[in-house]
Amino acid sequence: MIAEHTPLMIEVAEITIHNSVYTTLFFDFAIDFRPGQFVMLWLPGVDEKPYSLSYYSPTRFGITIEAKGRFSRRAVALAPGDLVGIRGPFGNGFDIVSSPHTAVVAGGCGMAPLAPLVTKLHPDLCFIHGARTKEFILFQDRFARTRHITTDDGSLGHKGVVTDLLAAEIQHRTVQNQHQFDMVYACGPEMMMHAVFTLCESHRIPCQVSLERYMRCGFGVCGACVCGDRVVCTDGPVFDSAQLRNMADFNRTALLKSGRAVPLSDYVTWRCQ
């Protein structure tokens, strides 16, 4: 049984290579899970890192990894049958609203934690996904729902950013006097999530975003992942508008491994090493 205590060593059941940087590892194991929660993935002798679940069924789950640093490059090189350690799940997960008026906004591999949420939401949701180029659109054929794509270079969908489409949809609903969004969910680069939050605030639309910080324990004691007075691993990783309003470090500051507080951009550069 996968639990929050010592890691359980389990076999990688299957691997899907999405493109040059995104790979999903599947495990044929039951895990108690809510969309937005994460597990700690241990590669013995290498390191242990938090990953949100990107696939979930009662008998199988998957995590999608972006190869960008020392650990993630090792993780995407795993083969079926290889053993890894899993503990979790940790974190609060998304608060799921049943309204047909919701939006999901994904940026890059921010699609991963949102994917299990999308299937739980009302099918009428407004689903927006942005990436650098067409190749970086994750889970191209996975969803029955209509997905509005944006790319930085225009190689697929709208040339621009996700907030272009979200702003247009919010505007459309306002002008047409239609029911406004009851909830907007976002995950992606923190700058993008902040832009979504700001846009939602200006239209008094509640939102939830999933934050990322360097983590150690995963269960709220070590303090490595504090963001202002919030503990990302236990208070989050999902935070709602009310919490984001009072979170001075949101889109501004993050702690390095040493605990040093640095501007978010410096943190992001360090995380990709």
Partner: peptide, 29 residues
């Protein structure tokens, strides 16, 4: 005196009846 990163993970494990940790004194300095 730092700066010091501390150890790689796993650093903190909950055993249920208590924890074991070797975070390794990370400090910004």
């Amino acid at each position: 005196p730092g700066p010091r990163d501390g150890h790689n993970n796993p650093t903190v494990i909950d055993l249920g009846f208590g924890m074991i940790n070797a975070v390794g004194l990370p400090t910004p300095g």
